[in-house]
Nucleic acid binder design. Structure first.
Length: 727
DNA sequence: AGCACGCCGACT
DNA sequence: GTCGGCGTGCTC
């Protein structure tokens, strides 16, 4: 097997290297030409990290070699590459092409994407990896030689093997940490090891093999996995979705193709890891934010080997240097954690779409609740949705307002009966809206959510008995309801900690387990217990929950975001999926179209209607959006760049309130640009042009006013931010 | 970001 | 004539 260095393209006599510099400056986001000095001519490779002179002769900047050309279009004299930082070419042509396209689409710099794609180099880790690679190669050669000369002296073989072993031992003695690392890398570097007998035996069901077969031809599919957990042959329990994705991933991998498997958080990743391991795939490469930098770089180097791999990770795994990518599998793409919080804020779903398109790899969206974005892709025929609905937990609805019953404690009596019934044989899950004790205020007369008079934020009871705004802190001393004019505030719903206390009274003698964002619990056993969890933090129960009770529906739905309905469906479906096959899911309150669609399993119809509504209102994802913010002059200049474009309109500019969590300085404005998908490239490139012009013209203006500090009125772009319409 | 270049007003 | 202010634009 050739090393990454050997596979990467060299200069081959071409005198000019084109380099992408590390820089946050938008005006530097293009390739710069450098000459290749004679002493480096044999060493340089496409994708290598290099140091080059920049700005002045003795100032150096870092960058990546993107390509070699025979001559430059640059008018001036080329400076020579100063050093090669690492011989290993870290940037593969695939990943470069992806970073460029993704950045262009989002009005950002390719360098910003590369920061997500390539972990910081660690020399120690790299040395270990290269040593292991060399050792594996030597071993392979030894074996090959031994096979070829099987007829001749048998003793020679033994001797050669002993030599290799002795060398390995000497090395391990020199660096104790190397043994584990080298062993792991060497094993997984050998493709024959990847298809272990266990893999074949426990391999995919025929439908999953059929999915894999389609994916490697570039199919794009959206599927809803069956509800319920699945027992692995190791005895461990994982969500059925995780077992299914693992089988598909393995089946793609058996076709000698790489797979990228992306999940929102580490709890999901752990389930996928367990499922892969149980199916004979412990060697999957994992990249996630919980790893140390060394671990991330080690994983990165393994992905870089010229061998098909299963790469498992969170959102940045979509940028992994996969060899011969066969499919990208995305779990629960509606989870907001898949949206990258760093500029240019690209959602993993979008990067995956671009990557699949560029590479011809398959794309697989799996989720218990489909996102509006995937729904759109299905409706335009870009993604094919599964036809047959899978097995779903039995769901019943007990709306307290339809059949009012006395609240004995935290839950209506009907729900309490369901809980007691379930507790006789196993664990019961209760999903609540918020952690801690924080209840929210509603009007005592009409039940409408109370809003702050100052900023329209929700009113809570952070200080016991004193209602104040959750956003601005203003006390609600002179509050009156905007709907019915009443002045009485009452608490509605309550957090998980408070619920636990109440349950301990209401169901005395029962084990009560709390799992919330701060103290998440991954798993609970099959013994009876009342598990109280905030949405998204529900533990997996061995064998599944006897009952899943969903509280606080009206409170979750009263979250005023564009995607409240979608989010609720996702939270509820994911919780319902944790029930045992013969368990039950109880929607304990609430009403209206979202609750109805969930209870009757018609969320696809609701989603279709939702998307139609957004189409007529020009809301995402029916159209794309970009927010343009900065000083009033800067924003106005930027919007002028969009003059004359069809299918583009904008809201605002409106002033951004100063202060807040982001400590926004006063005087800034924001406009929201809406545009059809077909105009995306043009809008992005024009707004990017405005950004470059602003940054270029700015340096002088800045210096004269506030030297050194970042210019607050600088133009800022953010594409496809679903939060822009939320309060 | 920093640094060079250049165009216009004040100087030996 | 020439020095140097700072606004403008480039950085291979």
């Amino acid at each position: 097997m050739a090393t990454a260095f050997e596979r990467a393209e060299g200069a081959n006599g071409r005198a000019v290297a084109r380099v992408l510099l590390d820089s946050a400056l938008p005006q530097l986001d293009h390739l710069f030409d450098y000459s290749v000095p004679a002493e480096l001519a044999d060493e340089v490779r496409v994708g290598q990290r290099v140091r080059v002179p920049f700005r002045s002769k003795d100032r150096k900047s870092f960058g990546y070699i993107i390509e070699f050309v025979s001559r430059s279009d640059f008018g001036g004299e080329l400076a020579p590459i100063a050093d090669i930082v690492a011989a290993v070419p870290q940037l593969t042509p695939d990943v470069w092409r992806l970073a460029r396209a993704v950045a262009d689409r989002a009005g950002g710099s390719a360098g910003d994407i590369l920061r997500l794609a390539i972990p910081a180099r660690q020399v120690r880790v790299e040395k270990k990896h290269l040593a292991a690679e060399a050792e594996a190669e030597a071993e392979a050669e030894t074996e090959a030689a031994a096979e070829a000369e099987a007829e001749t002296e048998a003793a020679a073989e033994t001797e050669a093997a002993a030599e290799v072993e002795a060398a390995a031992e000497a090395e391990a003695a020199a660096d104790p940490g190397a043994t584990v690392e080298a062993d792991g890398a060497a094993r997984s570097a050998d493709p024959r090891e990847q298809t272990s007998p266990a893999t074949a035996a426990a391999s995919a069901s025929t439908s999953e093999e059929a999915i894999a077969a389609e994916l490697v031809t570039g199919a794009r599919l959206a599927m809803t996995p069956s509800h319920g957990p699945e027992r692995l042959h190791t005895g461990e329990w994982v969500g059925g979705w995780a077992a299914q994705l693992a089988r598909i991933a393995i089946s793609v991998h058996e076709r000698e193709r790489s797979v990228i498997l992306v999940a929102p958080d580490y709890r999901d990743l752990d389930q996928l890891r367990d499922a892969l391991a149980a199916l004979g795939h412990p060697a999957a490469v994992r990249v996630d934010s919980r790893q140390s930098n060394g671990e991330r770089y080690a994983s990165f180097l393994r992905a870089l080997d010229g061998v098909p791999r299963i790469i498992l990770g969170n959102r940045s795994a979509v940028y992994a240097p996969a060899h011969d990518l066969g499919a990208i599998l995305l779990w629960d793409d509606g989870d907001p954690v898949l949206a990258e919080p760093l500029t240019p804020y690209v959602h993993a779903r979008d990067s995956a779409l671009v990557r699949a398109e560029q590479s011809g790899a398959g794309l697989f969206f799996s989720a218990h609740a489909r996102s509006a974005e995937v729904q759109r892709l299905v409706e335009i025929g870009y993604v094919r949705a599964q036809e047959h609905p899978p097995r779903r937990t039995r769901i019943v609805h007990a709306d307290a307002s339809i059949a009012p019953e006395a609240f004995a404690g935290r839950v209506p009596e009907f729900a309490a009966r369901t809980i007691r019934e379930g507790l006789r044989t196993g664990p019961v899950l209760v999903q609540v809206a918020t952690p801690g004790y924080a209840p929210v205020a509603v009007c005592g007369e009409c039940g409408e959510l109370a809003r702050c008079q100052a900023c329209a934020g929700p009113i809570g009871f952070r200080v016991v008995g004193r209602a104040s705004c959750r956003w601005c802190g203003e006390y609600a001393t002179h509050w009156h309801c905007s709907t019915c004019d009443s002045t009485t505030l009452v608490e509605r719903g309550m957090g998980s900690a408070r619920t636990v206390e109440q349950f301990e009274q209401q169901f005395s003698g029962t084990r009560v387990i709390l799992s919330d964002g701060e103290h998440p619990r991954e798993r609970v056993d099959a013994r009876p217990a009342l598990v109280v969890a905030t949405r998204g933090a529900e533990p997996l129960a061995a064998g599944g929950y006897r009952a899943v009770v969903l509280l606080d529906a009206e409170r979750l739905l009263s979250i005023e975001t564009l995607r409240a309905g979608e989010d609720c469906l996702r939270w509820w479906e994911n919780a319902a999926a944790l029930a045992a096959p013969d368990g039950i899911c109880l929607m304990a309150s609430g009403g209206g179209p979202v609750v109805q669609s969930f209870v009757y399993g018609r969320s696809d119809e609701w989603l279709r209607q939702e998307l139609r509504d957004r189409q007529s209102l020009r809301y995402p994802p029916a159209v794309r959006v970009a927010s343009v913010s900065g000083g009033p002059d800067e924003v106005e200049r930027a919007l002028r760049h969009l003059d004359g474009l069809r299918g583009v309109d904008f809201l605002g500019p409106t002033s951004i309130p100063a202060g807040g969590a982001a400590r926004t300085p006063p005087g800034l404005v924001r406009a929201i640009v809406r545009f059809d998908y077909g105009q995306g490239a043009e809008v992005a490139s024009r707004l990017r042009g405005a950004l470059v012009a602003d940054a270029a013209g700015a340096s002088s203006r800045t210096r004269s006013r506030t030297p050194g500090r970042a210019r607050p009125e600088a133009l800022r772009l953010r594409f496809d931010d679903r939060g822009v319409f939320d309060a």
